[in-house]
Amino acid sequence: MERIPILQMGDFLLVTIQVDMHDQLALTLQDDLSERISKTSARGVLIDISALDMVDSFIGRMIGMISGLSRIMDAETVLVGMQPAVAITLVELGMTLPGVSTALNVERGMALLRERAYSQ
């Protein structure tokens, strides 16, 4: 079965979405991530969507779910790399991703995760 790889970097999990996802793939990622957070006791999840040229309400909802889910499991989620055209479209669509932390790129996202995970 097709899957999106989840990489572990120390206390954090890194997901780079590089394919045009169909809905089932997005749902599988959600399941896989929750399992990996639990198994690795990860403190944070970084989701890089810089290769995505479209985020619709389904993917937006999945991102929100992952963020909420990981928070319950004591991990922070940061979404990074959203293309400007994608951001404009998402807002116009009516999705502002409340409760989801974002950063402009992977570097800033990792800094944000470290700050949050180790300041507690």
Binding site: D23, D53, M54, V55, D56, S57, F58, Q83, A85, V86, I88, T89, E92, L93
Partner: peptide
Amino acid sequence: RLIDLTKLVTAVSELAR
């Protein structure tokens, strides 16, 4: 142009679903 293209493709995704 890219912004209109992104909007169109997103609308298509919603409607096709």
